[in-house]
């Protein structure tokens, strides 16, 4: 009998360190599936962030590099300039990309660096135990917004896709979620489009994935998925914000 569902070759068969209900595992698997589907395992180089996904290189069977907190786009640039024929992607959380690494992501987009960024927006700092992130929703409680995020005191959430869409160098920008099988399939299609944009040398691509963090949202995994659908998507609407294909 031919198995219809198996582990992707690029995904190392080992338990992850992620918390129950975390989205990182699903997203890792999607990346591994795409690398297998496109048959690019031998020419892909990934960047692991400082954040919950710091050990991504333990789960993906490809060449990978660590980057200091916020700097994956710069490190990816340094790699891509040496190996323009390789597929280079960075994997980043919202603290990494939208707080400490904001300058790097904007300038990497403005150079239209031919890399793919996978931006995991879980609206919180996971690794450091759940502080406010730049993407924390208004009224959302975190360790550092114990009464809920208050715009007067804590400022507003930042929308990365919309922000980067103002930059000419951004060639493919999409926001998606992984709250249902349908959304996971959609996410895979968008990720694949990101990798293909790079293969076809279209320039900078970024896929933002709304991803659950049940532990630091203090919810059960089902409620966390519902929170994304009901609350996160109103601040962070899903969709495609830039597409080289439809812009000729």
């Amino acid at each position: 009998m031919e198995p219809v569902y198996k582990n992707p070759k690029t995904l190392i068969d080992t338990p992850t360190h992620y918390c129950p209900g975390c989205g990182h595992g699903i997203i890792h698997r999607l990346i591994a599936e795409i690398i297998d589907d496109l048959d690019i395992r031998g020419k892909t180089i990934g960047l692991a962030p400082v954040g919950c996904a710091v050990l991504a290189y333990n789960y993906l069977d490809i060449d990978m590099c660590e980057a200091a907190h916020g700097r994956p786009p710069a490190v990816a640039t340094g790699i891509k300039r040496v190996h323009p024929d390789k597929i280079v992607f960075s994997y980043q959380g919202d603290g990494d990309l939208a707080a400490i690494g904001m300058a790097e992501i904007i300038h990497t987009a403005s150079r239209s660096e031919n890399i793919t960024v996978i931006f995991v927006n879980n609206a919180v700092y996971g690794m450091t135990n759940g502080q406010m992130a730049p993407t924390t929703l208004l009224n959302q409680r975190t360790l550092t917004t114990p009464q809920g995020r208050n715009e007067k005191y804590d400022g507003y959430p930042i929308r990365i896709c919309e922000l980067l869409a103002t930059i000419d160098g951004s060639r493919f920008l999409a926001r998606t979620s992984i709250t249902s099988p349908k959304n996971i399939i959609k996410t895979k299609q968008l990720l694949e489009k990101g990798f293909k944009s790079q293969i076809e040398e279209k320039g900078f691509s970024l896929i933002e994935i709304l991803s659950p963090c049940p532990v630091y949202w203090r919810m059960n995994p089902n409620d966390a998925m519902k929170f994304i659908d009901d609350n996160m998507t109103t601040t962070f609407p899903l969709g495609i914000f830039k597409d080289w294909e439809s812009q000729n």
């Binding site: 710069a74 490190v75 340094g78």
Partner: peptide
């Protein structure tokens, strides 16, 4: 910061 981290990438790339 970007400069030294690009150096990191290019050095890692050999």
């Amino acid at each position: 910061l970007a400069a030294i981290n690009m150096v990191h990438g290019s050095a890692a790339a050999g």
